[in-house]
Design a protein around this nucleic acid. Structure first.
Lengths: 246, 246
DNA sequence: CCTATATTGTGTAATTATTACACAATCAAT
DNA sequence: ATTGATTGTGTAATAATTACACAATATAGG
């Protein structure tokens, strides 16, 4: 076995540790961010899309994105786009993956960093600047422009996984919600049906929900109780995940 | 609630969907990849590091990386570095995260895509091209050059999570291994101790291990049986992970 | 006001998974 | 032949998950 092997330099090769002029003059690639902005409304998971204005993708929908400025952090660029389009600033935002296939963009080499954002549709106002901007039921999202279908799919998949390990979902709900809302949310994200009693038992046993002693209004049936999520309690109790299972 | 909202264009803004000349001339940022290459030897998890040759980081260790060529896919760049340094081509490689803080690189704006690779240390030969190249016990990895400590930490964290959900670990082991090897591997990656009987029970119940009817050689005690991993069986049986738990 | 309809709120038993734990068997080294 | 180190194995206790049914409460409509 070849381990703990030490060696001395031999012939030099080009490496990351380049001199300044190299970074400035060669190997420059345009960098963008694309946001997969999820919302939850009418018991459906939705994604915010904009109509593409490239001829090549005429009529197709695409994700919201923009080029990253030369002295702007990646996260800052994603926040900028989110703020510009939804007016929201304190939103859940997470980097998911970077897509850099050579010919993914018709205008040249553009590598894009995909972000997943979760927003509460009650608390925003869409800012229509140029093209048509629209919430789409995720079940009807097909054939997006560029490689955006692939980016969307990978963000949805990541959301499905994350939401089972961390209480992200609450970012998609209003501050006050019923257990039915919460279950609808999980069912929409995971695209499964769940047992109502076991779902309730699970969340109550985790003990992060605060009973607000209020009930739903304007429902044509027995109203459910309203709850909020207690982030502080969660932070204290959250479990470290250890257990092999595949 | 503002949903399913449609709108017509108003004033145009700069967007991703730029014209060709824009992509070619502005917003260019150097792009690199960095590989966190893990190996497993002497019951320890190791990472392959190279001595930095930047004055600013004199004496410090850094990850293996390189600039991405203008017409090279990101994954291809990562494979290239791996191949160049370890001589290995069919290795586990996964993109983890992209780091793009404005001043992360002293030579200018360089955004880097981090990759995690798992290799079998028995099957490689290090290629020492320029600087000192060395396998480091992950327990002793501190104070790397650039933001490489942060990159390393995030790759290790991702490995710890992934290895509990998918059988990645086998990439770090020789084709034939004992259950003790396997347990050592999990204990090294997760930095925990496990119960030997329960560990065995767990893996046998998953039924992906093939008994090779061979035993370890050259051990100064009762030798253990050797096994291999059956990927095909795993592919058929792998579970879709559904269960809220946080 | 009464009835119909829809949905909430609740508990238990059966099954499955996880944990904790000890001793005999086997090999190498001497 | 004895020692030392490690493998291989099973069971009982606890915890988590699943499947499942009925009474209570609100609105809507006559």
């Amino acid at each position: 076995m070849i381990i703990e092997e030490k060696a001395r330099p031999s012939k030099p090769v080009k490496s990351l540790q380049v001199i300044q002029s190299e970074v400035e003059n060669i190997n420059k690639i345009a960098l963008s961010i694309d946001c997969v902005i999820f919302g939850f409304d009418e018991a459906k998971l939705k994604v915010l899309l904009i109509r593409s204005d490239l001829k090549k993708f005429a009529g197709k929908w695409s994700l919201l994105g923009d080029l990253v400025f030369p002295n702007e952090d990646l996260d800052a660029a994603a926040y900028r786009v989110l703020k510009q389009r939804t007016g929201l600033s304190d939103v859940y935002l997470e980097q998911v993956s970077t897509f850099g296939t050579v010919n993914r963009h018709p205008a040249g080499r553009v590598v894009t960093v995909a972000y997943c954002s979760l927003i509460n549709v009650q608390h925003h106002k869409l800012n229509i600047l140029d093209n048509e901007l629209h919430w789409h039921d995720i079940k009807n999202v097909t054939d997006l422009a560029f490689d955006h279908q692939q980016i969307f799919d990978s963000c949805l998949q990541q959301l499905q996984k994350r939401v089972q390990e961390h209480p992200l979902g609450f970012n998609l709900l209003p501050k006050k919600f019923s257990l039915r809302d919460l279950q609808n949310l999980y069912e929409a994200i995971l695209d499964i049906k769940m047992d109502r009693r076991n779902f309730r038992k699970k969340f109550f046993s985790m003990d992060f929900l605060v009973d607000l002693n209020e009930i739903e209004q304007d429902v044509p049936h027995r109203p459910g109780k309203l709850y909020k999520f207690n982030y502080e309690k969660y932070e204290k109790k959250k479990k470290k995940w250890v257990g092999i299972d595949f």
